[in-house]
Design a protein around this nucleic acid. Structure first.
Lengths: 411, 411
DNA sequence: CATGTTTGTTAGTAAAGCGTACGAACATAT
DNA sequence: ATATGTTCGTACGCTTTACTAACAAACATG
């Protein structure tokens, strides 16, 4: 079931330049890691890049022949053919018959991404009280699920629970596992170490290397909001300059700029929950400040407020009116916070993810109105502001997108 | 004097894979353009990358031997030697004697970037009423200057004036010109076309290709604030997650994230002047909204306000007190606008550029205080907020940095 | 003076992509 | 039916790139 090796991953010190490892059917390339300008670039890296390029083209373009791929990528038919042979070998691509329609010349052999040849394991640690896991296919669709009660586990104990869940999910896979993606709350560095996640009781937990060692599989770890943003881009058809806002216990954001996730100087990009918004005070926040975005927008605060209104009586219409006012105010605050970000980044799209019944109505509308009223018209007229279509599985699917992106260079 | 060919630059269609063009001593590589995942990557591109890597290492590291470079880059001594030979050939690097000090082994031949082997032409179109030009060395220091009155030239006429100035500056160069960098206000796309610059009366002006054709030199064009941000990073020792705020006629910003400039989905990133800030009204802005950042922070508005206070009389202490209050309020507004951006991007550094007498005192202090009061402590405690050390030449030097980065891969 | 160290270069090898050329398989014109 | 042209996929040889191995030069030290 598991196919890839334990993956020391980073620090590949002395890479043997041989073509295929003895291990058999393992994918041969760890493609396109971020090309920091301070790293040497070998021809074999170029090959990995081109291999990803071919796969990516096929992933986006549907059924294509080798010649089509060559035309689209700019590579030669020869080279393309060679790369395709490798991908066929690794069971990432399959031939699906010949092209119909009568044209002159030899009929083209159509290729497609092998949707059933591999599966991906996704873990979502961002929900309160429960650890969620799933097996997903290469399209990011959930094939099987397994959850685990979190109880009040934290620290080491929680880490063990995550490993156990991952094993249970892995057992559900019906095809070789391409890798494990994890979306976790907190600050995560690029090596997959959770630097700080108060909700989980984690500080400096080397989640990626630990899981990878325990499972013998490649593992990719990222912040849940970043994962969700990637999901929105890969599976939700979102633009490549995207901000995803997650409303839950707190408020967090994931940013995709020019198609690649933003980490920030201390890997804490997207932590907007404790930004003060507006110049007119506001409630006191747990962090000590007054008027943090979370004091207006978090799920507990909103549901609490709505419940209070309902219990206070009054006509149903009156309650709805007051409830909408609360939601609109929350949306307005979000809009106020987003204004400068939209201006500074020239974002193309903002996506809200969280409890649909809270976000989808007056809140979203009010956010949109506020952003438009507070930024240059050029920006706001081209800005798309919407709620996600990916539903509650967004982080699981984002985890899958992490693996696709990290292992295959597909996004 | 000019050495490089007219530079069709983009769209290199059929690149002959021959090693050196007949033209003689021209640098052979146009290095490290942004590696979009949708572009094929050839071994020769890898070589360009490695060449840049060696040069960059030397640029940052001072005097190093070939063996040193090999150790730092991870490349072999052989490969490094080969790349260095090329760089020597192109007069980008020089040998500067042997290493002193008694160690065993053959003494090392020290190398250095050839500071005087090439020069760069920088143009700054962002100042009111004047076009500024300069010859700079590879360290970004101004060697010679030439300015031109702009008068009320705009559109075609202004474009011609820019070409004329560029020619005058080029005539001042005393070494082969590596390229021409231009910092211009407005929205600039990556091909160097000015999509929109109201101040200059330009819409869709293909500045890069026009200049390049006229001058027969490689040309790089960017927004002035982006250029300034790059200058701050390359010459000012700033971090690689940086936001530079330019206060002048309006307010603009340039962003450097992870060391590379951010363009935004419509290439309009950094346009924060017309973001509404605060929730308490404010003056009406030329753009029609109320409370735009520019209504608090622009140079005309601040100098006007200060002049008004001074003419209104009162004791000097009273005038100073009231002047400081104006500056503090402006700083506070900037801080309010920056809060969400700092939180969303986890910036490491914010640099202010503009009239020193306005920015350096209470304004800066107030901005810093406000940002700290309105963002998570983790962020603010690690955030550096300061005015630039590069002075009024920041855009010229940024233009030079553009050329260094675009032509040599050095930043 | 022998030995060890560091530097920089020479020679040979493996990988990657290109260009050319070729057979296979099809449509269409004669 | 045959000839011609087109498109697809592959085989062969070449160039570029960076690697390994080996070596001479130039120094310090016992």
């Amino acid at each position: 079931m598991t196919e890839a090796r334990p993956s020391t991953e980073t620090g590949e010190g002395r890479t043997p330049r041989a073509s295929a490892p003895g291990g058999g059917a393992a994918p041969r390339y760890a493609p396109g890691r971020a090309l920091r300008p301070s790293v040497k670039l070998l021809p074999e890296h170029a090959r990995g890049h081109n291999r990803s390029l071919v796969l990516q083209t096929l992933y986006r373009g549907g059924r294509l022949s080798r010649a089509d791929l060559a035309r689209r990528t700019g590579l030669t038919r020869v080279t393309t053919s060679d790369l395709v042979a490798e991908l066929l070998d690794d069971a990432l691509v399959v031939e699906v018959g010949q092209r119909e329609g009568s044209r002159p010349g030899k009929p083209a052999t159509l290729l497609e991404v092998n949707r059933s040849g591999h599966q991906i394991i996704g873990l979502d640690l961002s929900e309160r009280g429960v650890l969620r896991g799933a097996v997903l296919d290469l399209d990011g669709l959930v094939v099987a699920r397994a959850d685990a009660e979190r109880g009040d586990a934290a620290g080491e104990q929680l880490l063990a629970a995550v490993v156990t869940l991952a094993r249970r999910v892995a057992a559900l896979a019906t095809a070789p596992v391409l890798g494990v993606g994890v979306g976790t709350p907190g600050v995560v560095d690029p090596t997959g170490t959770v630097l700080s996640a108060p909700n989980l009781g984690w500080t400096g937990v080397a989640l990626q290397s630990h899981l990878s060692l325990e499972l013998g599989l490649p593992v990719v770890v990222a912040n849940d909001a970043n994962a969700a943003a990637l999901a929105e881009h890969t599976f939700g058809g979102a633009e490549s300059d995207l901000m995803l806002i997650r409303v839950g216990l707190g408020v967090g954001a994931g940013l995709l700029l020019g198609g690649s996730p933003l980490f920030g100087s201390r890997y804490a990009a997207g932590e907007i929950g404790h930004v003060v918004v507006g110049t007119d005070g506001g409630e006191r926040c747990a962090c000590g400040k007054r008027g943090c975005l979370e004091t207006w927008l978090s799920e507990p605060r909103l549901t609490g407020e709505l419940a209070r209104i309902r219990t206070e009586g009054g006509s149903p219409e009156e309650a709805e009116r007051r409830g909408d006012a609360v939601l609109r105010e929350a949306g307005k605050r979000l809009g106020i916070a987003l204004g400068p970000v939209v201006g500074a980044l020239n974002l193309a799209e903002i996506v809200l993810s969280g409890p649909e019944e809270l976000l989808a109505g007056p809140l979203l509308q009010s956010t949109a109105d506020t952003v438009r009223a507070r930024t240059m018209q050029t920006f706001s007229s081209e800005l798309v502001l919407r709620t996600t279509d990916l539903g509650p599985d967004i982080v699981l699917r984002g985890a899958a997108a992490l693996v696709l992106s990290g292992r295959l260079g597909v996004s």
